[in-house]
Each structure stands twice: as C-alpha cells, then as structure tokens.
Measured scan of single mutants.
Amino acid sequence: ALNRGDKVRIKRTESYWYGDVGTVASVEKSGILYPVIVRFDRVNYNGFSGSASGVNTNNFAENELELVQAAA
C-alpha cells in the first residue's frame, strides 16, 4: 500500500501528469474510488508555472500509480 510522502509515477494515460512523478499527500481509507491524493511540482494547464492558480494535486487509484521511492 502507498503511504504519505511516497514518490509515485503516474500511469493513467489520459492524465496531464502521465509519466510524471508526484508525492503522495494523503491516502483516504473510506473506500472511495480514487483514494490517493498526489501532489506535483508543476501545475496543470489551469494555471501558469509559478502561479497559485493552477491545480497541482489530483486523486488517483492505487493501480494507476507506480512506487518510485518509499517515504523515509
């Protein structure tokens, strides 16, 4: 299972961040479909780089994520 702070690569092909590595911000335990919230260094097309207006978190299912580096 994934944990907060883990570095993960995104495998959801239609995602803006496909192939990117993000950090797990939190994992919901309530049984929702996309329980893993991942935070990225770059914002998506809703904002400009360096601006706070873009979105830099997204929810994924565990099977859409590949663990790159476990949290220390």
Rank of each mutant, 00 (worst) to 15 (best):
P35L: 10
W17I: 01
P35F: 14
V43R: 04
I32A: 13
T57R: 05
N56T: 09
G54K: 06
V43S: 06
N58T: 11
K7R: 11
N59T: 09
V55P: 05
G19Y: 03
Y16W: 10
E62M: 14
A70Y: 12
A70L: 10
G47S: 11
P35N: 14
A1W: 12
G31L: 11
W17Q: 01
K7E: 04
V27M: 06
G50I: 06
L2A: 03
I32Q: 15
F48G: 15
G50E: 10
Q69N: 11
G19R: 03
A70H: 10
A52T: 13
A72I: 15
L67P: 04
L67I: 07
L2G: 01
V36M: 01
T57L: 08
R42H: 09
F60M: 01
Y34V: 03
E62V: 15
R39A: 10
F48R: 02
R12N: 13
A71G: 07
V36W: 04
Q69F: 08
T23W: 08
Y34F: 12
D20E: 11
G19V: 03
R4D: 04
Y16H: 05
D41E: 14
V55L: 07
W17L: 02
L67V: 06
Y34H: 13
G50Y: 07
G5I: 00
S15R: 02
A25H: 11
N3G: 13
G50C: 12
F40H: 00
I37Q: 12
D41N: 07
L2N: 00
V55Q: 09
V24L: 01
K11N: 09
R9V: 10
Y18A: 04
A52Q: 14
Y34L: 10
E66T: 06
L67A: 02
V38E: 00
L2P: 03
R4G: 05
V55K: 07
V38N: 00
S53V: 13
A52L: 12
P35E: 11
V8M: 01
N63C: 11
A71Q: 08
F48I: 14
G31I: 08
F48Y: 13
G31C: 13
E14Y: 08
A71E: 11
P35C: 12
F60N: 01
Y18P: 00
Y45D: 15
F60T: 00
G5V: 02
L65H: 02
V8L: 03
